[in-house]
Amino acid sequence: MNIKSMKSAVAATAGLLIAAPLFLAAPAAAHGWVTDPPSRQDNCAKGATSFDCGSIKYEPQSVEAPKGSLQCSGGSGFDILDDESRPWPTKQVGSSVNIQWKLTAAHNTSTWEYFVDGQLHQVYEQNGRPASDISHTLTNLPAGKHTILARWNVADTPMAFYNCIDVQVGPGGGDNGGGDDGNPGGGDDNTGVPAYDPAAVYLGGDRVTHNGRLWEAKWWTQGAAPGTTGEWGQWADLGPLN
């Protein structure tokens, strides 16, 4: 091997040694969003808004940005989520409400923070990897119409995931969001669960009633009626209606 070939081989080996640690250090993907009460990106994904949300409707799980923001988008580039002039659907809830998440890639988490109209309301410690269907209960919410910002702080990266949820606490104006009649449990008594609509798009975690039973979508589905797809199909049978 001549001198020129030896120099080329050494340079290539050095490049591999430098690149390998960088590859191994890359953090695992982590994505998720709030499905109930529906977050703004969830409403966009379901086509529940009266306006076009743009690209966020295809990736509600991807509102990721550096920690510390109080914007609905977190500064991620999905600016539509920050637009307060839009008629965002609002869900009627009680003074206590269950916040249901859908995680497509759970990651080590430090905390979950919940802000009401920009003011920190409650914090949940995680310090580990959460379940894919994790939920938290917010209590003592003030009456009236509010925007709840849910901020999921990843433990071992500088990033967080952001969701804004528009709610009406108590009577007085829940609209377009399929209210749960102020039920503090977020509709778990089945009274606020909509009937199955074959034309609707459902995401994992969405619940419907059909033929006297309660069903939950396991993943994205449209046009496949609950009870027709078998045990391994798109719908989980949660039992008869209350």
Rank of each mutant, 00 (worst) to 15 (best):
V193F: 05
Q71N: 11
G179P: 02
P89R: 05
E84D: 12
R151H: 03
N127I: 08
W112D: 06
C164D: 07
N98F: 04
A225W: 05
A236Y: 03
A28K: 06
M159K: 09
G170L: 08
S62P: 04
K145T: 13
L17G: 14
G179F: 00
K4V: 10
A11F: 14
G32M: 05
A12C: 11
A217E: 01
I134A: 12
A217W: 00
D156S: 12
I80F: 00
G227H: 08
G174M: 01
N242T: 12
K91I: 01
T221D: 11
S8C: 02
D206S: 14
G205R: 00
Q100Y: 03
T139W: 00
W101H: 13
K57T: 01
V116R: 11
S132P: 00
W112L: 13
S76Q: 13
V123N: 11
T49D: 08
Q119C: 02
T157D: 04
P89C: 03
A195C: 01
A195T: 15
W88I: 09
H210Q: 12
I165W: 09
P184V: 07
V193W: 04
S76G: 14
A11M: 13
D83A: 09
F115H: 14
A224T: 09
E216W: 03
P38C: 00
V34M: 06
N190H: 15
P37I: 02
A195N: 11
P130Y: 10
W112S: 05
W219Y: 09
D117I: 08
P142W: 06
L141R: 07
A20R: 06
A45K: 03
L238A: 08
W33Y: 15
L17D: 04
G233R: 07
S76D: 13
G47L: 09
A9M: 13
K57M: 01
G174C: 00
A12Y: 03
M1R: 10
L203H: 13
